[in-house]
Write a protein that binds this DNA or RNA. Structure first.
Length: 909
RNA sequence: GCCCGAGUGGCGGAAUGGUAGACGCGAUGGACUCAAAAUCCAUUGUCCCUUAAAGACGUGCCGGUUCGAUCCCGGCCUCGGGCACCA
């Protein structure tokens, strides 16, 4: 019997499905292990060979953990709400639900062919009402909570109401609160809710007709669709993520994530420790205090002007009558700019004088107040003190508008550029003179606080998440408006389903506004929907208890599964999903709904699989194509060619002629009778004809080969191009493995006792595989497997004692062929429930042992010798070398190379 | 501009201070075969050379530490990723 991947794979996939092999439930007798993939957005293009990379890695790990005796939760689902399905609906008029479920069906059939060990009974879809009920529920909880800074956690809003009525909170006295009417009370509470409605500067995308979160915008364009984005002030639902900034930052340390990913999150959260200082500002005879934020309060003696953000609320009151017209012109100019223009013009300096002057609180000096877009309204206080001598942006501004530059570091040269001093000795700085910079920073902070001029302050760059989208295909908000007051729907009304609408086309208003009777008890319902990240923020919790209709997750299920032990997915979610999810989880933790503060304990980022495009070279103005090696002799154009008609860089000429009508009468200039194509590594995409479909690989080689090959390609976390060339190697390995069991139609396995040499091969492999899988070095495990199989083939080892453990070892990587052989070995149960073999240290140990030796009485070396060699033998060998070596007399010996049993070389200088 | 990561044969990649290039692909030669496929065996970093032996060179570049560096340290170059007026 030959190895027949298709027969085996169909057979065992059907078996696993029929027997519920991968179903799991809570089992107190076994330790749990939760392995999660970032669930896919089911796009219309289907899966290409890059998508399953992470899924294969996590599946191998899941299967390995099961063999190690863990109760493994390994689920899969779909992130199914979102813009592309809606854009498609706009073009075709189809309901997004239809396209989404079609796409899901296609994804599922592609996934099924690869032989994943998912418990499909736990599948979730974010667009399923039974699922998004809990997304809406979480939103209501956030609406109904506030962040207590003293306790540093979220608490029910009722507790804040109690506090306001008795003691007051912030600047609100109990008298004021108790005297307030309902509308005022509602407005006050809205300032504290975790999910709140507020006016903010948002990324407005005209092309998509919706606002976008910061991580959905890149270089001033929308990530989905690439439409320009502008800044606009709008009232939107927001999540108070910023309240969690400190905790999100601090608990990063406890996570087993890659350093680069943690660093990305740290940068995104952007903690900076500085000082808020109040500058009194005079305008038209009035004195108005302006608070600024700076990390370098020590440079305050170098302040020569102040700058406000154009959007700052103080701009109006600080503009003098004389400057009014000019300021208004400038504000209009800034408003008109799109985000993209603002980014691309960061080099150009713009601004306008407000007409007012501020008093430096330390020197009493009068400095002008300017307005410029280089100061951002959303960060710090939207106002800065400018120290042109020591800040490059302030410097550029001062040079442009002829403002003075006062250096405060001894000996620095600021004639050409600013001196961004992190060290040096202070001068021109009153009591700070003579101190070095580090000292001065602390001294200045102390001084400012001691004199009541300001206080230390920690700022974060992380903004609150804008939570509403003016789109259709998302979760509706369970909020209605009673006399303009946002009021939550009762939990019993959840899930609040999407209404039917006639057309998905954007008209400038939210699509839900066009729905008939979009109201609850006569009150109009919110017409925005939630963004894509809403549904993906807590899906890992739902997998623990996916059919629970009463709770997001039961206490019992949550206590058992706890958190995700291993999360595998791409880096592209570093500042989106992975921040929101952590926030969402911490919120639920604060309210006692989940037992873990952090959702994802260990996280591995798989690299991207790029495409390998092939090219042909057409001689300009002809229909003649030159082979790659000869193309420099001609003037040619490079043309992408479908990689399906190229094999090992050789073009199939007939297939090429048939590929496109315009190539039907193509002529070729060959080298050695063949047409060699050029190639390049590019993103895998349809337009470059370099997409490889996993279905095709499964048809030709089988899923086991695909799985092995994807892992063999290189380190998991590294990006690498897909090149089908090498796949024959792992396919051969599987065939060779098969031949240890079968020779033609003869079953070879015997019950003979294994020899030490055979045991050694086996145990070396067990040891290696265990080490490698724990560190995700799957590629080297497969190499070790190939070596072991080659050796065992050479030894003609067909012994059950060796082969049975070998099948278990192979099963995480190539589960179908392992399952087949496992049953052929006489087992009735799935190999899934086998036990990972233990290795015997003595067999698995290295052959070599390293001894340090003196050579010629002068130098110390270490030599590698067989384990069986005694130190005395080593000494004797080296002494013998001293006697016999021709180099010892007059030359310096640098290196003695000894391989087990043999002196190979003596290196001399 | 700032912060990460990487640079090794024709190609994907091994090697965490000790025989650089494991394993695989590709290539060349051979066995089996009428032939092909499949399979098996051998060779395969570069230079010198008819070949071999022997030797020299060799992990982006320059320097350092060490008996010994792909690996550790300092400086540069190139590529990839992230952030980008964050005061």
């Amino acid at each position: 019997m030959d190895y027949d991947s298709r027969r085996i794979e169909e057979k065992w996939q059907a078996y696993w499905a029929a027997n519920g092999t991968f179903k799991v439930k809570e089992d107190e007798n076994k330790p749990k292990y939760y392995v999660l993939d970032m669930f896919p957005y089911p796009s219309g293009a289907g899966l290409h060979v890059g998508h399953p990379l992470g899924y294969i890695a996590s599946d191998i790990y899941s299967r390995y953990k099961r063999l190690k005796g863990f109760n493994v939760l390994h689920p899969m689902g779909y992130d199914a709400f979102g813009l592309p399905a809606e854009q498609y609906a706009i073009q075709t008029g189809q309901h997004p639900e239809k396209t989404t479920s079609d796409n899901i069906a296609r994804y599922r059939s592609q996934l099924d062919r690869i032989g994943f060990s998912y418990d499909w009974d736990r599948e979730v879809r974010t667009c399923d009402p039974a699922f998004f009920k809990w997304t809406q529920w979480a939103f209501l909880k956030m609406f109904d909570s506030w962040y207590d800074k003293a306790a540093d956690k979220a608490r029910p809003i009722s507790e804040l109401v109690g506090l306001l009525a008795t003691e007051g909170y912030d600047d609100i006295t109990p008298e004021a609160w108790n005297a307030a009417d309902d509308k005022t009370k509602s407005d006050i509470l809205m300032r504290y809710r975790i999910a709140y409605q507020g006016e903010t500067s948002v990324n407005w995308c005209e092309g998509l007709g919706t606002v976008l979160a910061n991580d959905e915008v890149k270089d001033g364009l929308s990530v989905r669709g690439g439409f320009p984005v502008e800044q606009k002030k709008m009232t939107q639902w927001q999540l108070r993520v910023s309240a969690y900034a400190g905790r999100l930052l601090d608990s990063l340390d406890s996570l087993e994530w890659s350093d680069s990913l943690k660093e990305m999150q740290r940068n995104w959260i952007g903690r900076s420790e500085g000082t808020e200082v109040v500058f009194n500002t005079e305008c038209e005879g009035k004195t108005i205090p302006v608070t600024i934020f700076t990390t370098r309060v020590d440079t305050i003696f170098g302040v020569t002007f102040m700058v406000l953000a154009p959007e700052s609320e103080l701009v109006g009151s600080l503009t003098s009558d004389a400057q009014k017209a000019e300021v208004e012109d400038y504000l209009n100019y800034v408003k008109k700019k799109t985000e993209r223009e603002r980014i691309s013009e960061t080099k150009s300096v713009t601004g306008v004088f407000s007409g007012s002057y501020a008093l430096n609180p330390l020197t009493g000096e009068k400095v002008p107040v300017w307005i410029s877009e280089y100061v951002l309204a959303g960060y710090g206080t939207g106002a800065i003190m400018a120290v042109p001598a020591h800040d490059s942006r302030d410097y550029a501004f001062a040079r442009k508008f002829g403002l003075p530059v006062v250096p405060i570091i001894e000996g620095c040269d600021v004639s050409e550029e600013s001196f961004d001093a992190k060290e040096g000795r202070m001068c021109n700085s009153g009591f700070l003179n003579g101190m070095d910079v580090k000292q001065a920073i602390e001294a200045a902070k102390d001084y400012v606080e001691a004199h009541g001029l300001g206080h230390r302050k920690t700022n974060y760059r992380l903004r609150d998440a804008i939570f509403s989208r003016q789109r259709y295909w998302g979760e509706p908000f369970p909020i209605c408006y009673k006399d303009g007051v946002a009021t939550p729907l009762p939990e019993s009304e959840l899930p609040l389903l999407l209404p039917a609408i006639d057309s998905y086309k954007p008209t400038g208003e939210a699509p839900l506004a066009r729905a008939k009777n979009w109201s609850w008890n006569g009150y109009p319902i919110e017409t925005s929907t939630m963004p894509g990240f809403a549904g993906s923020s807590a899906y890992y919790l739902r997998y623990m208890d996916p059919h629970n209709e009463a709770e997001l997750v039961s206490r019992r299920a949550n206590d058992y599964w706890q958190d995700v032990d291993l999360y595998i997915g791409g880096t592209e979610h570093a500042t989106g999903h992975l921040i929101y999810s952590r926030f969402w989880n911490k919120f639920l933790y604060d309210l006692g709904y989940v037992c873990k503060d952090e959702p994802f304990r260990k996280l591995v980022n798989q690299g991207m699989i790029q495409g390998r495009s092939s090219f042909v070279y057409r001689i300009v103005g002809t229909n003649t194509f030159v082979s790659a090696g000869l193309r420099n002799n001609y003037d040619t154009t490079e043309i992408h060619v479908d990689i399906n008609i190229v094999r090992n860089d050789r073009l199939d000429l007939d297939a090429f002629k048939a590929w496109r009508p315009e190539f039907a009468d193509a002529e070729f200039i060959l080298e050695d009778g063949e047409y060699i194509c050029g190639w390049a590594v590019e993103k895998m995409s349809k337009s470059m004809f370099n997409v490889v479909n996993p279905d095709d690989i499964c048809n030709t080689y089988g899923a086991d080969t695909l799985r092995l090959y994807e892992m063999f390609l290189g380190p998991l976390e590294q990006s690498k191009p897909w090149d089908t060339k090498g796949i024959d190697g792992v396919n051969r390995f599987l065939k060779k493995f098969w031949r240890l069991f079968y020779d033609k139609d003869n079953w070879l396995v015997t019950d003979e006792k294994a020899t030490p040499a055979e045991l050694k091969e086996l145990h070396k492999l067990i040891c290696k595989e265990q080490e490698d899988i724990e560190s995700f070095s799957y590629n080297t495990t497969i190499s070790a497997f190939m070596i072991a199989v080659n050796e065992l083939s050479a030894l003609k080892c067909n012994k059950r004692e060796i082969l049975e453990p070998l099948v278990i070892l192979l099963s995480p990587f190539a589960p179908h062929v392992a399952e087949e052989l496992w049953h052929l070995l006489g087992h009735d149960d799935s190999v899934t429930y086998a036990r990972f073999p233990d290795y015997v240290a003595e067999y698995a140990a290295e052959d070599k042992v390293i001894y340090p030796v003196q050579f010629n009485g002068k130098m110390r070396f270490t030599v590698d010798l067989p384990k069986t060699t005694s130190p005395a033998d080593v000494e004797a060998t080296v002494r013998a070398m001293e006697q016999t070596s021709k180099y010892v007399e007059d030359k310096q010996i640098v290196k003695v190379i000894v391989v087990p049993g043999r002196i190979v070389n003596i290196v001399v200088k």
